[in-house]
Amino acid sequence: LRLEVKLGQGCFGEVWMGTWNGTTRVAIKTLKPGTMSPEAFLQEAQVMKKLRHEKLVQLYAVVSEEPIYIVTEYMSKGSLLDFLKGETGKYLRLPQLVDMAAQIASGMAYVERMNYVHRDLRAANILVGENLVCKVADFGLARLIEDNEYTARQGAKFPIKWTAPEAALYGRFTIKSDVWSFGILLTELTTKGRVPYPGMVNREVLDQVERGYRMPCPPECPESLHDLMCQCWRKEPEERPTFEYLQAFL
Rank of each mutant, 00 (worst) to 15 (best):
Y60T: 13
V179I: 14
K49P: 02
G18E: 01
Q46R: 06
R153A: 07
L246N: 08
E39K: 09
V63I: 09
R240A: 01
S181F: 00
K50M: 13
Y110V: 04
R122G: 01
P222Q: 06
M229I: 09
C11N: 06
L42G: 04
V57H: 08
E239N: 11
T151Y: 12
M108H: 09
L186Y: 06
G86N: 08
Y213K: 05
F249R: 06
E220L: 07
S76Q: 14
C230Y: 15
R113V: 13
Y170G: 06
L185N: 04
Q103Y: 07
G107V: 03
K49N: 04
V47I: 14
L141P: 00
R153E: 07
K49T: 06
M75K: 10
L59V: 03
P222N: 05
S64V: 04
L31V: 04
E223T: 12
Q43D: 08
F12Y: 03
G155T: 05
D207Y: 10
M200I: 05
N21A: 12
L185R: 01
R153G: 11
G89W: 10
A101D: 02
K6G: 15
A105I: 07
E239Y: 14
V195Y: 12
P95K: 10
N115A: 06
T30D: 07
N148H: 08
F158C: 05
E14M: 15
Y170S: 07
P198G: 08
F173Q: 00
E39V: 08
M48H: 07
L59Y: 02
V179G: 09
K135Y: 09
H226N: 12
R113G: 12
V201D: 14
Q231D: 13
E149H: 08
V71E: 02
E54I: 11
K50H: 14
E14P: 01
W180H: 06
E238L: 12
R211G: 08
D178M: 03
L80C: 12
E220T: 08
E54D: 10
Q9A: 11
S181A: 05
K161Y: 02
P198I: 07
E238T: 10
F249V: 07
V133C: 09
M17Q: 12
K176Q: 13
L141M: 06
K176F: 13
E54H: 13
E149Y: 13
T163S: 04
P196Y: 02
S181N: 01
T163M: 00
E210R: 08
C232E: 04
E65T: 11
Q46D: 14
E244Q: 09
I175E: 15
K85Q: 11
D99S: 15
A27I: 00
T88V: 10
Y116Q: 02
L84A: 10
E87L: 13
T191L: 11
E4M: 15
A105V: 10
F243A: 15
K77L: 11
E220M: 09
Y91I: 08
T24V: 07
V133P: 05
N21C: 13
E238N: 10
P198V: 09
W16C: 15
N21L: 12
P198D: 05
G8L: 00
S177P: 01
S79Y: 01
V63Q: 05
H226I: 05
N21G: 12
I70Q: 04
P219C: 14
Q43T: 06
K50D: 13
R172Q: 06
M17Y: 14
V71K: 00
G22I: 09
N202V: 03
E149V: 15
L56Y: 01
S106M: 11
Y150P: 02
